[in-house]
Amino acid sequence: MKNPLYLLQRALTYLVLIVASLLSVFPFFWLLVGATNTSADIIKGKADIGGALIDNILTFFERVDVPLVFWNSIYIAVTATFLTLLVSSLAGYAFEIFRSQVRERIFGGMLLMLSIPFAALMIPLFTMMGRLGLINNHLAIILPGIASIFIIFYFRQATKAFPRELRDAARIDGLKEWQIFFYIYLPVMRSTYAAATIIVFMLNWNNYLWPLIVLQTNDKKTLTLVVSSLLSGYYPDFGVIMVATIFATLPILIIFFVLQRRFVEGMLGSIK
């Protein structure tokens, strides 16, 4: 069927996909090139490699306590991810394994809570954190996200594929329920955990609005907040911002390329 119409359609498909891919990737190229240019050049739209990379990096390290800020981001993301996976996977597992009418109803209620927008929570949460003395404290960022309805759903869904015989065998061998969870379920479900880890880590790493409200001094801020505060105002130094943005984007980009399949899986799964 190699008629002209087919060939035309083929050509059109490639054209559309090539243009879409170029548009998708170009801003990344712009980011890399931008880091080597002075702010004045970026403002003028210069899109080739310049000689200001070292200067930009030095200025970035001069203006911002980079190791500290990097550590803040890592600390929040890692702690939050660990606790979220622990608490939410325990719940997701239990909703599936120990069924009861009351818990089914609670689960249904959680379905409704999925659509509660964060904007409606942030004012009471802010007041609450104020009363607890947690303003400008990383705990205030970590705590509210630990029980994630998305992740609970994700694990309940995944648990449906957890072989019942495994659990029965473990029980006959005399393992307690918590032992079954930690010694049998956890290792068996490691690919589910991997996918969830990537997603939760990324959400925390990229989190913006809530840290913006809670973290007020420079020594507490995360990379995302630093990028945003460098950008504020009418005359930001774009060269420095590009360097900061690379720092903020690179960890996730690396995770994506190393674990691409799990990454996509997690994105599909955490929402389903």
Partner: peptide, 9 residues
């Protein structure tokens, strides 16, 4: 993979 702030930049 970009954060919303990063791509805003």
């Amino acid at each position: 993979v970009t954060s919303l702030v990063a791509y805003s930049v």
